[in-house]
Design a binder for these strands. Structure first.
Lengths: 275, 275
DNA sequence: CGCAAGATTTGAACGCGTTCAAATAACTCC
DNA sequence: GGAGTTATTTGAACGCGTTCAAATCTTGCG
């Protein structure tokens, strides 16, 4: 199982600090993040004030800012955690299935399920995530680790599928990223979805999966070649460069190239930004 | 609409109010909006405080809130103005052209040109526009008028084109909305574009237009029929209902005959032939 | 005119995210 | 241990968007 990265500040194991005094600050950092995430879940993003987070965590508000540059940076914890959950869930559910459409739908359904608890205030996240200047943008470099994990899931969706004759090489290489983009569309749809239990999004996904599979299947036929060519070229030239390095297997095929766990730190190394 | 510019906040009466005594409040409302838009352009959205707007307009901050529910509602002015500018510009530039790809590219280029002055703080607009709860969302009912205008432009793009044999009826009806969605994608691309003068977006548009035209042209062929069918059905079922009423014909919103004849409303009597 | 009932306008006040100089704790090297 | 340096923590303060009770202006009507 190619674990690409582990969400950094998660420390579910409540270990007493007998020896590691050095980890004192990391403990505070984690405490703040955990408190924030709990309050976000309880009250929503907007209703959760920095003062409340600090107070609940038993620290001062200034201290929260010592570890996190701003309120929005606390969302990254959610982002990372959900991505990880989604990956685990999707892998488990896909096991044994070999039909591409089915695997794709499972992957997308898993996302909707994992995200469900946060739907009511997802819009509040989305607002800041939509800011191109924000580190939370799904295209930003800061969210690269989570994006890489998600793309990897779709690579596995493909790898586990019996797709028949091989596809156009370029398209084949692009597909994981394209499917991730498809997920982004689903996310957009989901955020705007106001139906009970986001039923509409679920129906949308159910409808999309076979459609996408059909397109992929048809892409092999001669008549579609020029279109596929055009599309892949366009995406390669205009879309992929805009999303921070996703390291599509071009250089050293994906699987092996992900050994660099160094990126795992979302909040950066040392918080010293004052002189 | 460049009406009366009142750059001097000291002289309150550039024109005597002989008759419109009732319009006093509308005058204040307009003054606030104009001031806000000027400051947005000068300093950007975030840097323009409500206090500054009120101060520059010579009213109290509370008064601004009497006329506008919040800061974000002042953006709507921009939105509407730009939409109008874009429509005028696009119509002028399209005049005489009959090639679909060319007309489409003109329409999109016009948008990029009209939006150019605001690019540096477009992200700040975009952030609030991305909130599904916001009235500024391009899908919201509040922005329906602007959206209708934009969709109309794309209807004219089609009406003025020589598209050859008639298209699938369903697709034909959907196309204006689809092209508007395409514009939304371009907008998304533009917002994230950091190149000089958004050159990348311009290249993207240049590349997209013929591609879209090709897809439309190919959609007529037998082989593509199932795909087109699937796509149009999906869009009709899942996409269009989520964007507030677009009011296809504005008069007869019949599902059947589709009042294509009644569209010439703002077209300006250019009866481009398509059949 | 007088005067009650809106419509409009005001500015202080609230709660928020964020900043910062200063206080305190922890660590290093002699 | 102690002096010097760095890491962490504090809470008051700033500027912001927004709210609201009260003040002021307009209007309709006897």
């Amino acid at each position: 199982m190619p674990e690409t990265e582990t969400p950094a500040p998660e420390t579910p194991a409540p270990e007493p600090p007998p020896r590691p005094k050095k980890a004192k600050s990391e403990q505070t950092r984690a405490l703040i993040l955990e408190t924030a995430m709990r309050l976000f879940q309880e009250r929503g993003y907007d209703k959760t004030t920095m003062r409340a987070i600090a107070s609940e965590a038993g620290v001062s508000v200034g201290n929260a800012y010592y570890y996190y540059e701003g309120k929005e940076f606390l969302i990254q914890g959610f982002y990372d955690r959900m991505t990880h959950e989604h990956a685990t869930e999707a892998r488990a559910r896909m096991a044994g299935k070999t039909d591409f459409a089915e695997r794709l739908q499972i992957a997308l359904d898993s996302w909707v399920d994992c995200a469900a608890p946060y739907h009511e205030f997802a819009a509040q996240f989305f607002r800041t995530a939509a800011d191109p200047n924000s580190a939370l943008s799904p295209f930003s470099n800061e969210s690269h680790p989570a994006r890489a994990t998600a793309v990897q899931i779709f690579r596995e969706v493909l790898d586990g599928s019996e797709l028949g004759p091989k596809l156009d090489a370029e398209l084949d290489e692009l597909l994981p990223d394209l499917l991730w983009l498809h997920l982004m569309v689903v996310v957009l749809y989901w955020v705007f979805d106001r139906t009970e239990d986001t039923e509409r999004t679920r129906a949308f996904v159910k409808r999309c999966a076979p459609f996408v599979a059909k397109i992929v299947a048809l892409s092999r036929y001669r008549v579609f070649r020029p279109l596929v060519r055009d599309a892949t070229d366009m995406i390669q030239e205009f879309v992929l460069p805009t999303i921070g390095k996703t390291a599509v297997g071009k250089t050293a095929v994906g699987k092996a190239a992900v050994g660099k766990a160094a990126v795992g730190k979302t909040a950066g190394g040392k918080p010293g930004r004052r002189s």
